[in-house]
Amino acid sequence: MRHIISILLENEPGALSRVVGLFSQRNYNIESLTVAPTEDHTLSRLTITTIGDDRKIEQITKHLNKLIDVVKLVDLTEGSHIERELMLIKVKATGAQRAEIKRTTDIFRGQIVDVTSTVYSIQLTGTSDKLDSFIAALGNAAVLEVARTGVTGISRGEKVLSL
């Protein structure tokens, strides 16, 4: 099963490499990873999506917790949560396809953020599934380039991940 693990990490040199190293060293899988500083500049927030059964995920969270730089973590998929991913996608937009792509973008509530006579650059936010569906919906339009941020997330309701 897919899990989203959010981590508060000391904003120290080498901290990220310890987290990433742990995954490769213990043969765990990283599907996506995002990281950026939080409102407290001494902390980074890292979101990892990974796949594994309950036992594997338990080992992953235990080993992450053992890393000295990991201050706190939560498996967001244990409760109800919001997850988002941002995608920037460049597609060839010529002739009749120009209008069709614009319509599809509107349906997915995306925005065309850059235009040339032959190319649209589109910005889209949502769950990873939604982004996948958008690419599929583009049909035979030529996708020139895709840049996705990977998943980030937050728990619903009062629950917070903080010190």
């Binding site: 040199p13 080498g14 490499s17 310890r18 190293g21 060293q25 000295i68």
Partner: peptide
């Protein structure tokens, strides 16, 4: 050294 030893230490420091 911090990189090479990373998987086999409990923790490591590079003195800044």
């Amino acid at each position: 050294m911090v990189g090479v030893s990373r998987p086999i230490v409990k923790h490591s420091f590079m003195v800044q």
